[in-house]
Amino acid sequence: CSVCSEPIMPEPGRDETVRVVALDKNFHMKCYKCEDCGKPLSIEADDNGCFPLDGHVLCRKCHTARA
């Protein structure tokens, strides 16, 4: 995971895991958050999703503030 540096592995008792890929980086679902404010990001293409800027994973509000 690009945030916590832990491997993305299935939880005990499970055969599969879910990971998020954004900007060629891999994330646990729980680690997929705005780099500035820490708001959890949605994997859907909506207002709560990722608004990347200069290689950073940001929420819409933080993207607008940086732009």
Rank of each mutant, 00 (worst) to 15 (best):
C1F: 02
C1P: 00
C1T: 00
C1Y: 01
C1M: 00
S2T: 12
S2I: 02
S2K: 04
S2G: 13
S2R: 05
V3E: 04
V3Y: 13
V3F: 13
V3W: 03
V3A: 06
V3Q: 03
C4F: 00
C4D: 00
C4Y: 01
C4T: 01
C4Q: 01
S5K: 12
S5L: 13
S5M: 06
E6W: 04
E6G: 14
E6K: 05
E6C: 10
P7Y: 09
P7G: 11
I8Y: 02
I8R: 01
I8H: 12
I8V: 03
I8D: 00
I8A: 00
M9G: 14
M9N: 15
P10Q: 14
P10N: 13
P10H: 07
E11K: 07
E11S: 13
E11V: 12
E11W: 02
E11I: 11
E11C: 05
P12Y: 14
P12N: 10
P12D: 15
P12W: 02
P12I: 07
P12K: 15
G13A: 06
G13V: 08
G13N: 04
G13P: 06
G13L: 09
G13H: 06
G13S: 11
G13E: 10
R14H: 11
R14G: 04
R14V: 09
R14Y: 10
R14T: 05
R14P: 09
R14K: 15
R14A: 12
D15V: 05
D15P: 10
D15E: 12
D15Q: 07
D15Y: 06
D15C: 08
D15N: 08
E16W: 00
E16H: 02
E16K: 10
E16P: 06
T17E: 15
T17F: 07
T17Q: 04
T17R: 10
T17W: 08
V18C: 14
V18Y: 10
V18S: 15
R19D: 10
R19W: 03
R19Y: 10
R19T: 09
R19F: 05
V20I: 11
V20G: 03
V20T: 03
V20A: 07
V20K: 08
V20R: 04
V21H: 15
V21R: 14
V21F: 05
V21K: 15
V21T: 14
V21Y: 06
V21M: 11
A22T: 07
A22W: 09
A22I: 11
A22R: 12
A22V: 12
A22P: 04
L23R: 08
L23W: 05
L23C: 12
L23T: 10
L23D: 09
L23M: 08
L23P: 04
L23K: 13
L23E: 15
L23S: 12
D24L: 03
D24A: 08
D24T: 04
D24E: 13
D24G: 10
D24V: 01
K25A: 08
K25N: 03
K25V: 02
K25G: 03
K25E: 03
K25W: 01
K25H: 02
N26E: 12
N26H: 12
N26V: 11
N26L: 08
F27G: 01
F27P: 02
F27M: 12
H28A: 00
H28E: 01
H28T: 01
H28F: 00
H28N: 03
M29D: 10
M29K: 14
M29P: 12
M29S: 14
K30D: 08
K30S: 11
K30M: 04
K30C: 07
K30W: 05
C31R: 01
C31T: 00
C31A: 01
C31P: 01
Y32I: 00
Y32K: 03
C34N: 04
C34W: 00
C34T: 01
E35H: 05
E35M: 06
E35D: 06
E35C: 00
E35Y: 11
D36S: 10
D36W: 06
D36K: 03
C37F: 00
C37R: 01
C37G: 02
C37Q: 01
C37I: 01
C37K: 02
C37M: 01
G38F: 08
G38D: 12
K39C: 12
K39S: 11
K39W: 09
K39V: 10
K39N: 10
K39D: 10
P40F: 09
P40A: 13
P40E: 12
P40I: 03
L41H: 04
L41F: 09
S42C: 06
S42N: 14
S42M: 07
I43M: 12
I43P: 15
I43C: 14
E44V: 05
E44R: 07
E44T: 06
E44W: 01
A45D: 11
A45M: 10
A45P: 13
A45T: 10
A45Q: 14
A45R: 13
D46Y: 05
D46G: 12
D47L: 05
D47G: 13
D47S: 10
D47E: 11
D47Q: 08
D47Y: 04
N48F: 07
N48G: 12
N48R: 08
N48E: 12
N48W: 04
N48D: 06
N48Y: 09
N48T: 13
N48C: 05
G49S: 09
G49C: 06
G49Y: 05
G49R: 13
G49Q: 14
G49P: 12
G49F: 04
C50N: 14
C50K: 04
C50I: 10
F51K: 13
F51D: 14
F51L: 09
F51I: 08
F51Q: 11
F51M: 14
P52F: 10
P52H: 11
P52T: 13
P52I: 12
P52S: 10
L53P: 04
L53A: 11
L53E: 06
L53T: 08
D54V: 03
D54N: 08
D54A: 08
D54Y: 04
G55Y: 03
G55N: 07
G55W: 02
G55Q: 05
G55V: 03
G55E: 10
H56C: 09
H56L: 11
H56F: 07
H56E: 05
H56K: 14
V57G: 03
V57L: 12
V57E: 03
L58N: 07
L58Q: 03
L58R: 06
C59A: 00
C59E: 01
C59V: 00
R60E: 15
R60Y: 10
R60I: 05
K61N: 09
K61Q: 10
K61T: 13
C62Y: 01
C62R: 00
C62H: 07
C62I: 02
C62P: 01
C62T: 01
C62Q: 00
C62F: 00
H63Q: 15
H63R: 05
H63V: 05
H63A: 05
T64E: 13
T64A: 13
T64H: 11
A65F: 15
A65E: 14
A65T: 13
A65R: 12
R66I: 04
R66D: 04
R66E: 03
R66P: 08
R66M: 13
A67N: 13
A67G: 04
A67C: 04
A67T: 05
